[in-house]
Simulated assay, not measured.
Amino acid sequence: MISRRAFLGGMSAAALAVPVLGSPALASPLTTARRRAAPTLPLTIVNSSGNFDNASVSVYIVGVNLDTGEHARVTPDGQLLAVSPSDNGSDGYADYAIPLQGSGDTTLTLPNMSGRIYFALGDKLKFKVVTDGAGKPALQYPAGWVSSDANYRVLHDTVEFTFKSDGMYCNTTMVDMFSVPLSIELQGAQQQKTGTLVAGGREKILAGVGENPDFGGLRQEDMRVIAPGHALDLGAFPDTYYDSYIDEVWSKYQSTQLKVNTGDGRVFTGQVSGDAFTFDGGVQPIGRPSTRDVLFCDGALAAPNDGVTGPVAAILGAAFNRSTLLDATDQPGTDPAAFYRHQVTNHYSKVMHANTEDGKAYGFAFDDVANFASYIQDGAPTAIKVTLTPW
């Protein structure tokens, strides 16, 4: 079964969606023995950045209380508290910062919840509590890639997680942007680690993205590189970039069949008819995507959580981003050497994968198709460690 990102429903339009990882309908079955996870998990923060001392680093643990559905944040002593507009200070922002210890590692307590662990370097992040359409408190998250956002000039990055009764599901992510090198290590039924960059990886990523002229607008000085979908929305990436590739795919599969193996014993066969990819097996027709649809794995490539159309759309989204559809009529591809070889491809994601030690990264929303994302899970977790790795 393909594990893919799901998002909370009912989020305020003013707040960025918090990923819920490990939804039973979406997550890969755990191969380890299942047992009920503890209600809390030790979280150790290790600052090995070499560029910032502990006093310059702030941690934020924010997300959703899975029991109540409320937007919530974690206090330095491990309490999970619902956010409130009264949390906003005189400057209009809520200060949810958790400081690191003066020196050495910092150990915190992570409660059952789904959300993000943010790291801000050199300055604090500004969160704002607003009221959603239902009159409930909702947390606005940083959109640091937008120049008008209050966090644009703050070096920051995040890991995503869901910690609940059946285990811990977590990943580093570049789906929105990349700025701060981070790795995660999960202990439990087994010991797993992912996210570590190669030596000099941060500078290699910042420089490497600009080697393709179309992607040059993704770099925002030395602060970060942003995902091409966000750059497109900001007018810094061509909105027709994938059009020629999409045209070739549509032409090829008018007379050729595509087989999609969803990894659970099912294989769906599809072919282009008019403006839609039509598949057997009850899959809803998948329309001709735009460049933006490809980059966000959304629009025509949106993957509903229905167990049928969703997995097929996710695999198509991954194949477009990896540019494997013209080379292979069986998807998903599983050989990374065959990814990103076409001139029109997601060079942003390509650079991310090229600069991680294990070759895994979350370069786009369905980069976990065929298990190429920097994602780990454990049904019996005992501890998690997040490291700010050397630049």
Rank of each mutant, 00 (worst) to 15 (best):
residue 54 N to Q: 08
residue 180 V to K: 10
residue 152 Y to C: 01
residue 154 V to L: 09
residue 345 T to W: 11
residue 265 G to V: 05
residue 338 A to M: 11
residue 50 G to A: 10
residue 230 H to A: 02
residue 376 I to T: 09
residue 242 Y to R: 06
residue 277 F to K: 10
residue 110 L to P: 08
residue 48 S to Q: 15
residue 92 G to C: 07
residue 231 A to P: 04
residue 24 P to M: 06
residue 293 D to P: 03
residue 63 G to D: 02
residue 313 A to S: 15
residue 292 R to D: 09
residue 217 G to K: 08
residue 347 H to D: 07
residue 352 M to Q: 14
residue 147 S to T: 12
residue 117 I to V: 15
residue 214 D to T: 05
residue 230 H to E: 06
residue 182 L to Q: 15
residue 163 F to V: 05
residue 231 A to T: 02
residue 73 R to E: 02
residue 334 T to G: 08
residue 69 G to F: 03
residue 17 A to E: 12
residue 39 P to D: 15
residue 47 N to F: 04
residue 183 S to L: 11
residue 98 I to K: 04
residue 149 D to P: 01
residue 7 F to C: 00
residue 386 V to T: 13
residue 308 V to R: 00
residue 330 D to F: 10
residue 380 A to Q: 14
residue 62 V to Q: 02
residue 113 M to T: 01
residue 35 R to S: 14
residue 102 G to S: 13
residue 3 S to I: 01
residue 315 I to R: 10
residue 247 D to S: 14
residue 198 V to E: 07
residue 53 D to Y: 11
residue 286 I to C: 04
residue 358 D to C: 05
residue 274 G to I: 09
residue 192 Q to R: 11
residue 24 P to F: 08
residue 64 V to T: 14
residue 357 E to R: 14
residue 315 I to P: 06
residue 291 T to A: 04
residue 365 A to D: 02
residue 346 N to G: 00
residue 156 H to I: 02
residue 275 D to H: 11
residue 150 A to P: 03
residue 240 T to H: 12
residue 85 P to W: 09
residue 24 P to D: 09
residue 168 M to H: 05
residue 306 D to L: 05
residue 202 R to N: 02
residue 279 F to H: 07
residue 89 G to E: 09
residue 86 S to M: 11
residue 301 L to E: 04
residue 110 L to V: 09
residue 54 N to H: 09
residue 294 V to A: 06
residue 150 A to S: 14
residue 34 R to T: 09
residue 183 S to G: 13
residue 322 R to Q: 12
residue 167 G to E: 10
residue 353 H to P: 00
residue 232 L to T: 07
residue 204 K to Q: 14
residue 36 R to A: 14
residue 151 N to A: 08
residue 18 V to S: 11
residue 107 T to K: 14
residue 149 D to G: 05
residue 78 G to L: 07
residue 138 A to K: 03
residue 211 E to L: 13
residue 34 R to E: 12
residue 25 A to W: 10
residue 223 M to T: 03
residue 291 T to R: 04
residue 73 R to V: 07
residue 324 T to D: 02
residue 15 A to F: 11
residue 156 H to E: 10
residue 123 D to I: 01
residue 91 D to F: 01
residue 60 Y to M: 09
residue 5 R to V: 00
residue 175 V to K: 01
residue 12 S to R: 09
residue 185 E to S: 15
residue 312 V to W: 03
residue 109 T to Y: 09
residue 129 V to E: 05
residue 210 G to N: 04
residue 60 Y to W: 01
residue 187 Q to V: 03
residue 15 A to P: 11
residue 327 D to T: 13
residue 342 H to Q: 15
residue 45 I to K: 13
residue 114 S to H: 06
residue 208 G to I: 06
residue 84 S to F: 10
residue 306 D to I: 03
residue 59 V to H: 09
residue 270 G to K: 10
residue 272 V to T: 06
residue 115 G to A: 10
residue 375 Y to E: 00
residue 11 M to Q: 14
residue 243 D to A: 12
residue 161 F to T: 07
residue 42 P to H: 13
residue 345 T to K: 12
residue 139 L to A: 06
residue 313 A to C: 04
residue 179 S to L: 03
residue 206 L to Q: 03
residue 3 S to N: 14
residue 224 R to A: 05
residue 140 Q to A: 12
residue 229 G to A: 08
residue 3 S to T: 13
residue 197 L to P: 00
residue 333 G to N: 08
residue 236 A to Y: 11
residue 172 T to S: 13
residue 106 T to P: 02
residue 272 V to Y: 09
residue 244 S to C: 01
